[in-house]
Design a protein around this nucleic acid. Structure first.
Lengths: 329, 329
DNA sequence: TTATATTTTGTAATCGTTTACAATATAAAT
DNA sequence: ATTTATATTGTAAACGATTACAAAATATAA
């Protein structure tokens, strides 16, 4: 493989001139530019990003931290991140933590060691202390889940309000006994959504029954099934379910079906996220739409701004309740 | 940020010695090692991968090329790739082509320009000519979809046999009028699966009705719905569907439901891939399980071998027909 | 103790760029 | 034609590591 020196020699110019041609600087005569371009073509030269990046002290890589790539919620955000990154001439390093602190540390090292210029963290289980410390010296953005006091800018939605509206919808169509399938309260979003649930109940003078609140170990389908099993074993069955993720809701749906109950006739179900699957189930799922793609584009934009030393402001995006078959009638 | 020279000065040794400590070489006295380690700690030094990678002429990055991250089929493969990559001290650059040739070229440039050490291509729409040419000078592995004559090693399953078994299963449980929902024949896997479909029919003396073969523009849910709409508009309705992806099958399922038909009583459905979601539908989906995670680990292993100059052999992995509710009874 | 073998350390080149700054070539002004 | 201003090119020093090879320090043998 040819390097810039060989190109320079072949074209009869200096490396500086080759570099200028490479970077499209205009202080090069048409004649020499052509000489250089010819040499590049003849030698099949490709400039090495390793050399360039070292010299420029940048990697042009954005580290994207997610708990699990199989969760479709993240897929759509990543979509947005990647498209924006490409436009800004960056690429993304995808990093799955699997909620494993060792993994997390490997990835943080990438930015400490200059192999990534910044981080978009979407892992709710991230070690906030480490993240906060790293945020003092490196560009970091939190996306979706965040830690308020970390001083790290974030982009997210108003989880409390979103949950509030979802539950209010259930109340409006006549439900009074509404179960909550929530994940672990150690996550901020879980606490916020639970507060929204409570606010809606209180506002309508409904008693909040602790027996109707279920906590899962995760956001996946199987946890939804498990939780729903418990729900259905209650003496006085609720008539509606609010689950904090679509996958939980879909698991609940499945469990309800297997008890030969009907949705929404016997039990209404509301999910959260509006992942693509939420429209593929039978019945289709009422859910809170998060602007995932947009969240991704904004997070990427914020991160690049941060990398370039600009000030960036945290942002709370709009959500929307999408009413579909699972709460109809 | 400190660099190796400052550490050396602070520790009163040469940069070579610092480097030796960094790389765990044993030719360093315990006393000096401690001096160096202290200096590293005091200066908060982190070795720059930019410098190291340039010197070593490697990036330790694997480029993973997929059409679309939102397809869960790829998520599980990526899982396998990433876990293996980490173990081998590599990281993955995730690249979505969106079946856009410009995108593809941006990504290929990353490897041409040394920012990635190799490629795992999973994009069926990849430009085979470009890939073949690039494969002559760079480490590339094809995963799942492949081009036989590219000379590029691949890991995949026997698509013909898998489709053959799926259709044979439908025949065994009594179906004679079986529709095929296939994607575009320009893809090798689509041709192979269609051959398997034909083989099963022929073997059982069933007439292959061209009217029962439907081609879609993609593998997603909505294409399954569309195709199923056409299927159901036929005068003589088929009693079973074989779709070449789970998402297509799930789209078909949805459309069947919306016509108030029952699966499997009125129409049986078989999908392909065994994505996680295939178990969440109602009814659960009979499907061909591809060993996606394993395919990922193997592809990653092959790629790293290739990067290290070893010979690698293409591999065809086992598949398995998973019979579930959508073909029961 | 001295000569020799072995281990530990240091010097300096190298990986492949970019870019101040200096030097040269060209254009404009007198 | 000479001076001055401007545009183009070249030289060499970074960026931050690794590693032959040389040199120095230590261990072993006589």
């Amino acid at each position: 493989m040819a390097n810039i020196h060989q190109v320079a020699k072949h074209a009869g110019v200096s490396v500086a001139t080759v570099s200028r041609v490479l970077n499209g600087q205009n202080s090069v005569t048409a004649k020499t530019r052509i000489k250089v371009e010819d040499a590049i073509k003849q030698l099949n030269y490709e400039p090495s990003l390793l050399g360039r990046n070292l010299r420029n002290s940048e990697s042009r890589l954005l580290l994207v931290l997610i708990p699990n790539i199989s969760n479709p919620f993240y897929s759509e955000i990543i979509n947005g991140i990647e498209n924006t990154a490409i436009d800004l001439n960056y690429n993304i390093l995808l990093c799955e933590t699997d909620t494993n602190p060792d993994r997390e540390n490997i990835y943080f090292d990438l930015v400490r060691k200059k192999m990534a210029d910044g981080i978009i963290s979407m892992d709710p289980a991230v070690n906030v202390e480490t993240l906060t410390k790293l945020g003092k010296t490196h560009a970091i953005i939190q996306c979706s889940e965040y830690a308020v006091d970390s001083g790290i800018p974030y982009v997210t939605i108003d989880n409390l309000e979103a949950a509030y509206r979802a539950v209010k919808h259930l109340i409006r169509i006549g439900h009074t006994r509404i179960a909550l399938i929530n994940s672990d309260q150690k996550y901020l979003y879980a606490r916020q959504r639970q507060l929204g649930y409570q606010k809606a109940l209180e506002e309508h003078g409904l008693h909040m029954d602790e027996e109707l609140i279920f906590h899962t170990q995760g956001l996946g389908f199987e946890y939804g099934q498990q939780a729903m099993k418990k729900v259905l074993s209650q003496k006085q069955r609720p008539t509606a379910i609010f689950a904090v993720s679509d996958l939980l809701a879909i698991g609940a749906l499945k469990e309800i079906h297997s008890h030969s109950l009907k949705v929404p006739e016997d039990i209404a179900v509301v999910g959260f996220d509006k992942i693509a699957f939420s429209n593929m189930t039978h019945p289709t799922l009422t859910t809170v739409a998060q602007p995932m793609y947009q969240m991704g584009t904004i997070a990427a934009k914020m991160l690049v701004d941060k990398i370039q030393g600009k000030e960036v402001e945290s942002l709370i995006l709009d959500h929307e309740l999408v009413i579909r078959e699972s709460t109809l009638g």
